[in-house]
Design a protein around this nucleic acid. Structure first.
Length: 198
DNA sequence: TCAATGATTAGC
DNA sequence: CTAATCATTGAT
């Protein structure tokens, strides 16, 4: 048996840049989730949005609060929040500590299916994690993961895309916001059925 | 187009 | 304290 290469983990230092730089670079990377059951679910990130200081759509635009505190944390941690009382959303915290900056993970192309879901049709499988609230449902992400670090074999971590992978990226404006609507800080993989909206 | 659903936030 | 808001989703 030859030992396998360890997975190409994304390190905190790689994320210690502006969210506007990190967001497109995360497209094609893999988000891994170890469920409480022990099962590991993976999905390729196919859609992201950046939120940054000075950005009126950023949760921390006005001031630091209990909810947005995790955005001020160090790169490579999570910012998870509850939206509309129903759904959770997952962000990857970026940039330097005390700089409120994060990338919202908006959609995943699942490469493994949770055991609790039976075999969905390929059509449904593609849409299973197409949206920030839906992917958190599938991966069982809630507030208990807020501010936790993205590290291998923890609850969540990131795996780099191969150096030869050239994503066919589309850059557009962000979705579902009323402030900062003109900032082109949304990216998604072109021709991907798992993107939340085209 | 609209309701579900609850924590958070701004405003008084 | 109170009322509006909200980085959503799925049904109609």
């Amino acid at each position: 048996m030859t030992p396998r290469d360890s997975p190409p983990i994304i390190s905190p230092s790689w994320l210690a840049r502006s969210s506007v730089e990190v967001a497109p670079d995360l497209i094609g990377c893999t988000l891994a989730r170890k469920m409480d059951s022990g099962q590991i679910i993976r999905g390729v990130i196919v859609e992201t949005e950046a939120y940054a200081p000075g950005d009126p759509a950023c949760h921390a635009y006005r001031r630091r609060t209990a909810r947005n505190a995790a955005m001020f944390g160090s790169a490579g941690t999570c910012y998870v929040y509850l939206i509309y009382g129903i759904y959770h959303c997952l962000n990857v915290v970026t940039d330097q500590e005390e700089v409120a900056s994060a990338v919202l993970i908006r959609a995943l192309q699942l490469v493994e299916i949770p055991e609790r879901l039976q075999q969905p049709s390929p059509r449904k499988l593609a849409r299973l994690a197409a949206g920030p609230g839906k992917l958190c449902q599938v991966l069982e992400i809630d507030l208990s993961l807020n501010a936790t670090p993205l590290l291998p074999n923890q609850a969540l971590w990131l795996e780099a895309r191969s150096s030869t992978f050239q994503p066919d990226l589309v850059q557009t404006t962000r979705i579902g916001i009323t402030q900062g609507v003109d900032l082109p800080w949304r990216w998604y993989l072109a021709n991907c059925p798992a993107v939340s909206r085209l």
